[in-house]
Simulated assay, not measured.
Amino acid sequence: MKDIKRYYAIPAQPKDIYNALTNKNMLEIWTGEDAVMEPVAGTEFSLWGGSITGLNVEFEENRKLVQQWFFGEMEEPSVVTIILHPDKKGTSVELRHTKIPDEAFENISDGWDEDFFGALRELFI
């Protein structure tokens, strides 16, 4: 198992990024795929047409999102924490992703940079 901790600069206010991460319609706009999302702890979610599935654990409006991501037959889910830090150029997004299966690490790592935060950043440029 491996962990990731990264920061991404996005030229938008935390409330706008939070909305893009938690609003089903916004998720579908910037990912270009079907999404299932309800910003309520204990609800299941699905991104990229079911490529990513899991459980919403915690929401702190305009500041924080915690999810469990499921990988096949793993006993323990992977944990994703996204924290939004306002700064003078918009928002510094802190990503912490723990318990990533070794065989999925490279794909997940690239996916965060390109597919997830790359696409999210494009929404606000």
Rank of each mutant, 00 (worst) to 15 (best):
V80Y: 06
T22C: 10
T81R: 09
V80A: 11
E114T: 10
S78W: 03
K5A: 12
V79I: 15
N25V: 10
N56D: 09
N56H: 05
K99T: 11
I29T: 13
K99P: 01
K88T: 09
K15F: 10
D115V: 12
E33P: 00
P86M: 01
N19C: 00
K89T: 14
H85L: 14
K15R: 11
K15T: 11
I82S: 03
D110C: 09
L123A: 10
A20F: 04
E60C: 08
K89I: 13
I125N: 12
L120H: 07
T22I: 07
Q68N: 14
Y7Q: 14
I82L: 09
G54P: 04
R6S: 15
L55G: 02
S51T: 11
I83D: 13
I83Q: 15
E106H: 12
D34E: 15
A9R: 10
F59T: 07
Q67I: 09
H97P: 01
T43K: 15
V80I: 15
F124E: 01
P86D: 03
R6H: 11
G54D: 06
A119L: 10
E76I: 13
V80D: 03
K24A: 11
F105C: 03
W30T: 06
K99A: 13
A41F: 00
D16I: 04
P101M: 07
V79W: 08
Q68E: 15
H97M: 01
E114P: 00
W30G: 06
P101D: 08
Q13L: 14
M37K: 02
M74V: 06
M74W: 09
K88A: 11
E75T: 12
D3P: 01
I10R: 05
L47Y: 07
M37W: 06
I52P: 00
P101T: 06
Y8W: 03
R6G: 08
L55A: 02
D113V: 09
D115A: 13
H85Y: 15
A20M: 05
P86R: 01
K89F: 12
A35N: 07
K64G: 00
V79E: 14
E122K: 14
Q68W: 12
D113I: 08
E60P: 00
W69Y: 04
I108P: 02
A119K: 14
E44Y: 09
G118E: 05
K89H: 12
E44P: 00
D3G: 09
E73W: 08
H85R: 13
V57C: 07
P14N: 09
E114W: 07
P39G: 05
K2T: 04
T31C: 02
G42D: 03
D115G: 12
N23R: 07
V79C: 10
F45P: 02
A41M: 01
L84F: 05
K15L: 01
I83M: 11
E122S: 13
